[in-house]
């Protein structure tokens, strides 16, 4: 039997023009009617970065404890928070994309996969450039180490992760709307269960394995290694990324197989 996930990937490639149109439209529609328009999409995260830097590094000049990859709190926080915000935004938008597109899907013969994809891509268009630009802002820390090259694949893999998870959750949400509430809660506590706010060394050694249950732990550690120390991401980070992507890919494939035929009826 053919894998529905592979089918979807083929469909996306075939309809790549439409994916482009839909993605652009999603971004523009979000800010339709505002004077600033689509620029707000980038202004918001930029302001967040600026305020972390101002508050923690300039006004309070807070310092991290021993063994932290950097001493400045704001500098440390920005890396993890940008990665997490990008992930949470993409997953959340991806998750509600199918239910939101219910009306369109019931009246137009379009493959459902278009909608989680456009939601995740629209989010990525905002955050991926931000993450990549951090590499410039953090030049004094990594000093142009070749490890910076790892940023691009990591960002692309993060987008893939968000797409797999967002699409999977969008199917679950189509089945049961309450899924959205549970996921919203998990996304709000997620930053505490990853080395986003505190370095991993601050977590008790016996409980550190718990952090790896958060898919973003791998990516946050990877970005921190590159941006704060100019080091290549450690091997376990790459391994964790691979495991998460494969597990989510298989789960999504199963969910698609079980729901494909009735998905549109549930919207």
């Amino acid at each position: 039997m053919r894998s529905p996930l592979v089918d979807d990937a083929r469909t996306l490639w075939r309809l790549r023009g439409l994916v482009g149109v839909l993605t652009r439209r999603e971004l523009v529609a979000r800010f339709a009617g505002s004077a600033g328009g689509v620029l707000w999409a980038w202004v918001q995260p930029l302001l967040t970065i600026a305020s972390y830097y101002l508050v923690f590094d300039i006004v309070f000049a807070m310092r991290m404890g021993e063994n932290a990859p950097t001493q400045r709190v704001g500098t440390y926080l920005i890396v993890g928070m940008m990665a997490w915000t990008a992930f949470a935004d993409a997953v959340q938008r991806g998750m509600s994309s199918l239910v939101d597109a219910g009306g369109i899907l019931q009246k137009n013969p379009l493959p459902p996969v278009l909608f989680p994809t456009r939601a995740v891509l629209a989010s990525a268009l905002v955050y991926a450039p931000m993450l990549l630009l951090l590499a410039l802002g953090y030049w004094p820390l990594h000093q142009g180490s070749p490890a910076v090259l790892a940023m691009l694949p990591m960002v692309l893999l993060q987008i893939t992760l968000a797409w797999l998870l967002g699409y999977l959750l969008s199917i679950l949400m189509a089945a049961l709307r309450d899924v959205a509430q549970v996921v919203a809660f998990m996304l709000s506590v997620g930053p505490f269960l990853a080395p986003v706010l505190f370095p991993i060394t601050l977590f008790p050694e016996g409980w550190r394995w718990l952090l790896w249950l958060n898919p973003m732990t791998a990516w946050v550690l990877g970005y921190q290694a590159v941006l704060l120390k100019g080091a290549w991401p450690p091997a376990e980070v790459g391994l964790a990324m691979g495991v998460w992507l494969v597990v989510l890919g298989l789960a999504l494939d199963v969910a698609l197989r079980r729901s494909r035929e009735q998905l549109v009826d549930w919207l």
């Binding site: 199917i171 679950l172 089945a175 049961l176 709307r177 899924v179 969910a255 079980r258 729901s259 009735q262 009826d265 549930w266």
Partner: peptide, 16 residues
């Protein structure tokens, strides 16, 4: 075929 579930919870169960 339309599958009629007694509740959306059953639907989620079917996917999971």
């Amino acid at each position: 075929e339309y599958r009629l579930y007694s509740s959306p919870r059953q639907r989620l169960k079917a996917v999971l």
